[in-house]
Amino acid sequence: MAEALYFMPDISGFSNFVNDTEIEHSIHIIAELLELLLDNNPLELQLVEIEGDALFMFSTKIPSYKELMQQTETMLEEFHRHTKEYDTKRICTCGSCKTTIDLDLKFLVHYGELTMIKVKNIIKPYGREVIQIHRLLKNQIPVQEYVLFTENMYMLYQDNMIESWTKKTEIYDLQNLNYFYKILDNIKLKVAKDSEIEAEKNEDITIPDATINKTFNANIQTIHRYLSELKYRHIWDKEVMRVEFDENEVNRVGTEHNCVLKLGTLKFETISRPSKDSLIYGEKTEGMILLRKFYYLVKLHSLDFNTTEVSLSLYLEYTFLGRLLKRSILKRITKMWQNKLESLHRVTKSVISQ
């Protein structure tokens, strides 16, 4: 009988995350995180299936203790680097994006006989070993991030498990089931510390070349959604025929997309700026003629539920030839954005009146 290692990374906090926050963004975020785990799989474990918030994987090639622990640590570190970006680079204010930083990751590992079942063209592991690792998902470990070894795993690696492991016994089906766990909270702390040390890479945007101020009779969240959700761009920006972007990714600082215009295509990157009392969204491009770079930032400040102050700042970095035509270029771009804001106001105002 063949034997296999069974491996399950499981995202903690997933149920509350989905139930209490916006479902569309939560689906994108969980999908990103599961894909990230699959991309950081140096042991080349085979994916059996995706089980909501977890990956069920296995391998008949049994790794060393060091190799296995390295995989769990790599997965966990990349997981937290990704969730940290939702804290430092997000531009969306929905509950899903704001609480991604609170998600945790645990690992369950088991070793035992490998029995396969075939249903039509689907072949996957089956039997008591699969049942055992799934039962342990509902364990009583008092922390959120850990790696759990079943007793079979302990017998396989016991000579290497010399410290930081805790034995625990629970009753399943009226029988005692032993397992061992190691707390992994140091990795999340390391990622948080690294993030604090690394300087925030904001664009050096100081004095704008032009500013347009306007009061919108619309809710601040509605305006921000139509600005930052790329699927709405063509509704208010009439110069854009369509926007090409990854529909499975939540827009955040560093996200790139292509605006397809009547004459050509412009590639934009999302930018922002920290603010305690306002919502800010912006983009930059290096593809505009006569300009080295073009940036815009839209600052939204709520006056009341349906009234929002909108301040648009335009930043232009000219080429040599562009400097010769600076006044006409700035006038044209300012007029263009006045029209965009008028259109955005009409669209967002109509949303609250429906």
Rank of each mutant, 00 (worst) to 15 (best):
Q140F: 08
F149I: 02
W165R: 13
I171W: 00
Y172F: 14
Y154N: 13
K167W: 10
S164D: 15
D159L: 06
Y172K: 12
I141V: 06
V147C: 08
L137K: 10
Q140V: 08
Y157L: 09
V143K: 03
N152E: 05
M155H: 12
V143A: 06
L156F: 06
L137V: 06
E163F: 04
N139I: 02
I171R: 00
D159Y: 05
Q158F: 12
M153N: 08
K138W: 06
P142F: 10
N160V: 02
V143C: 04
F149V: 01
Q140G: 02
I171S: 03
Q158R: 09
Q158P: 12
D159T: 11
N152F: 01
Y146P: 00
N160R: 03
R135T: 01
M155G: 10
K138D: 07
N160P: 00
M153W: 04
L148H: 05
K168L: 09
I171T: 14
L148P: 07
Q158S: 11
Y172G: 05
E145D: 01
T150L: 04
M155E: 15
E145V: 02
R135D: 07
L136I: 01
D173F: 13
P142N: 02
E151G: 04
V143L: 04
E163K: 14
I141L: 00
D173N: 15
D173K: 15
D159W: 03
W165L: 14
Y172R: 12
Q158T: 10
N160D: 14
Q140M: 04
K138N: 10
E163C: 02
I141M: 01
N152K: 07
Y172H: 14
S164E: 13
T166E: 10
T166W: 06
L156K: 09
E170C: 12
K167A: 12
E145N: 05
Q144C: 00
